[in-house]
Amino acid sequence: MRNNTLLKITIGILAVLGIALATSIVGFRELNRLSEREANFAGRSIENGAKLFETNCIGCHGVQGQGIPGVAPALNSANFFDGRLQEVGYAGTLQSYIELTIASGRPVGSGNYSAVMPTWGEEYGGPLRPDQVRDLADFILNWEATAVGGGEATPTEEVVIDPNADPVEIGMAVYAANGCAGCHGEPGGAGIIGPNLGGIATRAGTEVAGLSAEEYIHQSIVDPNAFIVPECPTGPCSPNLMPQTFGSTLSEAELNGLIQYLLTLQ
């Protein structure tokens, strides 16, 4: 009996020492573990943000966040990380600025950008939960390394349009270079925030009485507010969504090419 009890007490003491040892091992690793886990979840947040960006944002801000001229600003540019807060006079951090803008949107398009930023946060009636807004902000902030320098900038191709080429080819290049697909989608696919232009050649002649197809398309590009079609993919179309500046930014040849190209979309 006596030896038995002593043996049990010894094993018990060893087990308690084992518990102390196990806890010490955890304690010893704990600081490293915490920072490792922090990096893990920061990484996963960026992954989530990338996915959300792809589903919700590329229509206006471009697949790689390069923005679409006249529609929505670039988010992967040096200026976005270095100058934006001063430009708008925002006193908080860039992260809070991004989260705020995503959640509450931009009620009016500012000078350079015509598109309205919708309210994405669920607290303002949008579809995204606060954690998703944070994930998106983490993803956007992750462009900093490549935007500010050091890393390789996201390549955005400089498009050179040959004025002597076939007008339809010029038009296709203009369509691509000006980010038309950002809102209208690829012709024949689905529109994103603007109406899809598949079949525009057929519709154009009958939309507005007194305008030929060519005249109607011309008017829609240079003066988009003159006539607003009723139905857009996200609900009724609203004025001022399409840039009002194409009349001055496109050359005669480019404008003509674009019209010729659109007229081929039967």
């Binding site: 490792e36 886990r37 990096a39 893990n40 920061a42 990484g43 996963r44 960026i46 992954e47 990338a50 996915k51």
Partner: peptide, 8 residues
């Protein structure tokens, strides 16, 4: 999918 280097 997106995979981040640190996601672990």
């Amino acid at each position: 999918f997106f995979i981040h280097e640190e996601a672990g």
